[in-house]
Design a binder for these strands. Structure first.
Length: 800
RNA sequence: GCCGGCGUGGCGGAACUGGCAGACGCGCAGGACUUAAAAUCCUGUUGUAGCGAUACAGUACCGGUUCGAUUCCGGUCGCCGGCACCA
């Protein structure tokens, strides 16, 4: 055969696959299904990054294998195309974001097609397509009608550079995740989604799914569920009480003061009784000025002011204790107030030391003068009246019962998770389908009016007062109230980028349906997604948001499953040759087009799978790419050594069965690197032997096909096989034939290998020991204490 | 600080439930082919000593369990990722 020319081969087969509709999703619902999903890309102006093909190739391999195994496979692709960079580019170059998106999508699509992925392109979706975002808006209306979308005046994270409100998740170290600009607090009326309503289920239902452990752990930490109690402290001289949340009700006897957040409403309420109100206000103002970043930066140095004129009463011992304000207590968590137990909480301890407040030990086991004793596993209660002598866990139970009986407290679960800030003061996003009427308030538009299309505007610049560019479109903004028919104004904020990506996997199932988000019968067949792979960076945001929406749609009867994805895996990043993250400024960017041009798509695919453990990050190596091309060249050249024999040759039969087993299992476990290594070994075996039977070669081509689909199709045809390799059946192995009859095992003395022997696999222990002793000969020179034989593995003689 | 992960040749990385450490690839060295180079093919390649068979050491470090530890346990150091005053 002539030399391997990927340029010709790859174009040829991409054309054939398209003509033959090779990867069109099957409609026979009696067949088993497999839904493989990769995160759809944001079509940026830079084109495909060399990191994209890693997860795409991985699931392309799984998908191609599943097709050969007889499944209906849904492996779709689309575009998460709303977003800031497009809008920024549009602003700078005065091109409509629609056009920018179209161009970028065109480029991305061509690049993906050049890589030979088996996507069914008839199911392509685009979040910016009105026929798509119609349903994003439809879901929003459902949320609104259920009271899960609400408007709230609240301090939001405001990026001073992008002039846009950000979700908590978009703020990294007090900076804007996108532009690195300073983030400050700004009070604005925002649309919020009540994800907190689903907090428990988002944790508990993780038991129903198969996710990488670290993904489950991150989700749990992010939701941050904690169990404790709320306790009421009476404010001295009033009938009112101050409620705190604590996870350590057992330490109640050690509460020597209280702290409330600087924004706590009780300060206003008791303004008249407070003698140092001005001082408190000054402190509050200082705290408000600090950005979140500064607040955490200065975490170690506690500040605060005592509220003079008010005291609280510790409900268990009736002691009068002071109340302080400090910015280490957050208004947004718990009740905005805490009971301080300096002996057993590190922050309270630091605060007490600084302001010289009493520290009372109530759990024995540490030295509370030196540091807070926070261990809950070992200590016993002291100085705690009826709790004395109990373990922490018992004391918690007992005190909570006591508080409940007395009506001054109760069990309480809290979450770190906050509601989702859903508004963006931006143009390039889904319009929120709500109008505001002075009489009727916020009114949803009628479903029949969907999609509510984005109007064309003159300028995409956000306004300085923080309003969306849409606000300037008075023709669009002024409308009538769907409820009373009076004059009303449209909502001008748009949805965040996370909206469209929260349900896109549903639309792939029935992308052209005009009557519904998707046909229920189809949803029933295809859901849940069997295997979803995506980046670790999306575990706390996208993954959580889409699980939330899915659960909501489940409650609404729209989707048939509680969870959207039954399995979730994550890939590692691809770094530059110097081991650093690829970036223009570091000058270490690899362009996938260049690799495809020089070596071919099959080589790029093979290399990215061979580069290292799939879930770990890996550095690029141009030499490594060359090595993979060499491997493919060797497979190619092997076609000259193919004999007519359809069976496996006797001497390689075991190796063949072993390799099929290894590759089949390793693909499933995403151990692509070792699967490829096994195929390289097999090729080395063929070359050593100088020939390969047609049967052996066909199997090799089928095993390699998911990784290098173009080349294997060409060779399949080249050696005169029937049909296409994509229509063939995944090779089977016989477990019995993966085991050699004879095996070479190690012979050890005291655990150190001294010789090897070749024995029959089923040899009796006695015979194995005899053979081993023969092999050791004079090395056995002491008294034998023990003889160990692990069948098929090792003989170990212990001598003294 | 807390949570998660990792530490193996010159490099990327293998090693099933504790059983011959270093598969496979890269690089390097030597050889074949060539006028020559590239490409390709063959041989070697953890370190130390030895011509050699071989011996000893060796999976971040210290210790433990075991006939036997890269794997399990305790401690130390280092790197990466996430969260970060969440009461």
């Amino acid at each position: 055969m002539e030399t391997y020319n990927p340029k010709v081969v790859e174009k040829k087969w991409q054309g054939i696959w398209e003509t033959e509709e090779a990867f069109k999703v099957g409609t026979d619902f009696s067949k088993p299904k497999f839904y493989a999903l990769v995160e759809f890309p944001y079509p940026s102006g830079q084109g495909l990054h060399v990191g994209h093909p890693r997860p795409y190739t991985a699931l392309d391999i799984i998908s191609r294998k599943r097709r050969l195994q007889g499944y209906n496979v849904l492996f779709p692709m689309g575009w998460d195309a709303f977003g800031l960079p497009t809008e920024n580019y549009a602003m700078k170059n005065h091109i409509h974001p629609k056009i920018v998106t179209k161009n970028n999508v065109g480029r991305f699509k061509q690049q993906l097609q050049d890589l030979g992925y088996s996507f069914d392109w008839d199911r392509e979706v685009n979040t910016t397509d009105p026929n798509y975002y119609k349903w994003t808006q439809w879901i929003f209306l459902k949320l609104f009608k259920k009271g899960l979308a609400y408007k709230s005046e609240m301090p939001i994270n405001w990026c001073t550079s992008c002039k846009v409100g950000l979700a908590n998740e978009e703020v990294v170290n007090g900076k804007c995740e996108r532009c690195g600009g300073e983030v400050v607090h700004k009070v604005k009326s925002q649309w919020m989604l009540k994800i907190t309503e689903y907090a428990d289920r988002l944790i508990d239902d993780l038991d129903l799914v198969d996710y990488f452990d670290r993904i489950k752990v991150s989700q749990k930490n992010w939701i941050g569920r904690s169990h404790g109690a709320e306790v009421d402290f009476v404010i001295g001289g009033t009938k009112d009480s101050l409620t705190v949340y604590t996870t350590r009700p057992d330490t109640l006897f050690g509460a020597t003061y209280m702290v409330v957040s600087p924004e706590h409403p009780m300060i206003e309420k008791y303004k008249d009784q407070i003698t140092n109100y001005d001082e408190l206000m000054a402190y509050r103002e200082e705290a408000a000025k600090k950005s979140d970043f500064e607040r955490t930066e200065l975490a170690k140095d506690k500040t605060g002011v005592e509220i003079k004129g008010l005291k609280a009463i510790n409900p268990v011992n009736d002691k009068e204790i002071p109340i302080w304000i400090s910015d280490y207590v957050l208004m947004s968590y718990g009740t905005g107030a805490i009971m301080a137990v300096p002996a057993h909480d590190t922050r309270d301890w630091e605060f007490a030391k600084k302001f010289d407040l009493p520290i009372i030990e109530v759990v024995a086991g540490g030295n509370v003068e030196e540091e807070a004793f926070t261990d809950v596993a070992t200590g016993k209660l002291v100085n705690s009246g009826f709790l004395d002598g109990l373990e922490v866990a018992e004391a918690k139970e007992k005190i909570t019962e006591f508080l409940t009986e007395k009506g001054i407290g109760h069990k309480k679960t809290n979450f770190k998770l906050r509601d989702w800030v859903f508004s963006r003061q931006r143009y390039w996003g889904e319009p929120i389908p709500i109008v505001k009427c002075d009489k009727c308030g916020y009114v949803p538009i009628d479903e029949s009016e969907l999609p509510l299309q984005l109007p064309d505007v003159e300028s995409y610049e956000p306004t300085d007062n923080g309003e969306s560019p849409l606000a300037k479109m008075t023709d669009w903004v002024n409308t009538t109230c769907p409820c009373c028919g009076g004059p009303a104004k449209r909502e001008t904020d748009t949805m965040p980028q996370w909206a469209g990506s929260s349900w896109y996997f549903l639309r792939y199932i029935d992308p052209h349906n005009e009557e519904a988000l998707a046909d229920p019968e189809k949803l029933k067949y295809w859901l849940p997604v069997d295997w979803y792979n995506g980046g670790m960076e999306h575990t706390t945001l996208h993954l959580l948001y889409s699980r939330f929406w899915h659960k909501f749609l489940y409650d609404e009867g729209v989707v048939p499953t509680k969870e959207p994805y039954s399995k979730r895996t994550s890939h590692g990043m691809i770094l530059g040759e110097n081991g650093e993250k690829m970036s223009k400024s570091r000058g270490n960017v690899i362009n996938p087009d260049d690799i495809v041009g020089e070596f071919g798509a099959d080589t790029l695919r093979t290399y990215e799978m061979f580069i290292g453990a799939f879930e770990l990050s890996a550095s690029w190596s141009q030499e490594g790419v060359r090595g993979c091309r060499r491997f493919l060249d060797r497979v190619w050249k092997l076609s000259d050594l193919v004999t007519d024999e359809e069976d496996y040759s006797k001497d390689l039969e075991v190796t063949m069965h072993q390799t099929i087993k290894k590759v089949s299992e390793d693909f499933e476990a995403m151990k692509f690197n070792t699967a490829i290594a096994a195929m390289m070994s097999l090729v080395n075996d063929f070359n050593k032997k100088g020939s390969v039977t047609k049967g052996e070669y066909k199997t090799l081509l089928q095993l390699l096909n998911p990784v290098a689909p173009h080349m294997t199709e060409e060779l399949w045809e080249g050696i005169g096989c029937e049909g296409r390799i994509y229509q063939s059946t995944w090779p089977e192995y016989d477990e019995k034939k993966t085991i050699e009859d004879t095996v070479e095992i190690a012979v050890q003395i005291n655990g150190k290998t001294k010789a090897t022997i070749t024995i029959d696999r089923n040899i009796a222990k006695e015979d194995a020991i005899v053979k081993a002793k023969e092999a050791l000969g004079s090395k056995l020179d002491k008294t034998i204490v023990k003889e160990i034989y692990v069948p098929g593995r090792i003989v170990n003689i212990v001598q003294k």
